[in-house]
Design a protein around this nucleic acid. Structure first.
Lengths: 191, 191
DNA sequence: CTGATTTTAGACCTCCGGTTCAAGAATTCG
DNA sequence: CGAATTCTTGAACCGGAGGTCTAAAATCAG
């Protein structure tokens, strides 16, 4: 009963995610969201409550899709180091090949909202922790497979790689590709 | 002739820098600046022209003081690795010991303004490049002194260390001290 | 068809950020 | 001392951001 929605909520959340990712949370106005989604402001508020709530859903979506991407690439064929390199290179390439360099939404959220929005910051932090877990798991898998030394502390190494990745994604805003590739190579030389 | 300024412009710029650093560019309102500096809004505009121009001066000041700090710490006694560790630890500690974790202003500027403010982004980028130069110079000094191997490519290593530093300063927003120290140790194990 | 129910679109409202202004205050010069 | 000059400040202006509301439109049950 009642009039049916003229849009797919999941699609709108995905479009909102792109907009927040590109322009930042504060930098995205309700008018921007309406334009990006093709849904009028009033309808967005009716369906999602507020800009902040829509952002929560966008950030959750980002976490899920990012996690799936990482799992997919890391589980490909080859050694741990090869897979991790492939993943890092992919992220750098995605950032540099897009129309705008916008880094990582989780990281952007931490930078923009830490200290001002506890919940969003925690969600973004969890996304980073999840990434560390995936890296650690892949390194341990490499140790079982024999392509990573037993002496490597997988947890610490994963932590370090996440730091490198964070740095890469900041630097991808202004540095060029060869520089970023050199950073990846240097970071991976450590284990 | 004319009425003399009732404040020291350099002091006001320093106070503005602190405010921009803590709250971000967009997050800092003229009212915030007036409160932080003790100078009325109108006077700020009279003296500095606009929020944006004041920000330029604040960012320049940040670059100069940051550069001096780095030079000071890096030129202390000890090996290249010891001095770089001391510098990284100092930055992490400064961030974690402050009332709010606010990372690095240059990096925050890149994250917030890349793609929207070409000049500010370039200035921030130059600050990072300057840091890389300082790191490379210190590594080369270590090579001459014999505490760093001749086979190390100072430029690449410096680039990598800057990436680690960038990552550290993002992660310092939400991760705790032991984690950050482990990252420093792992990064420095590479040369 | 009718009534109940939900969505829609955009007008509307309020608040605040960035900026300008007008009037007064402090100083130097003649 | 008066004039010229520069600084100070609170008030006022303007636009846009975030959010609300309403009348119309679309659907379905009966």
């Amino acid at each position: 009963m009642g009039r049916p929605k003229s849009f797919e909520p999941d699609v709108v959340v995905a479009q909102a995610m792109e907009t927040f990712w590109t322009k930042g949370y504060a930098g995205t106005s309700p008018a921007d969201l309406a334009e990006a989604t093709g849904v009028a402001k009033g309808s967005l508020y009716h369906s999602f409550g507020s800009k902040r709530e829509l952002f929560t859903r966008a950030l959750d979506l980002y976490g899920r899709t990012g996690s799936e991407l990482a799992e997919g690439v890391l589980s490909g064929p080859g050694t741990a180091k090869e897979r991790i390199r492939a993943y890092f290179v992919l992220l750098v390439d995605m950032d540099l090949d897009g129309p705008v360099r916008r880094g990582c939404l989780a990281q952007n959220t931490v930078e923009e909202l830490a200290g001002r929005d506890e919940e969003a910051t925690r969600t973004a932090h969890r996304i980073e922790e999840r990434m560390i877990e995936l890296l650690a798991a892949r390194i341990e898998q490499g140790q079982r497979a024999g392509d990573v030394g037993r002496d490597v502390d997988a947890g610490t190494q994963a932590l370090f790689l996440q730091a490198t990745l964070s740095g890469l994604r900041v630097m991808a805003r202004t540095f060029d590709r060869p520089v970023l590739y050199r950073i990846i190579d240097t970071a991976l030389a450590g284990f």
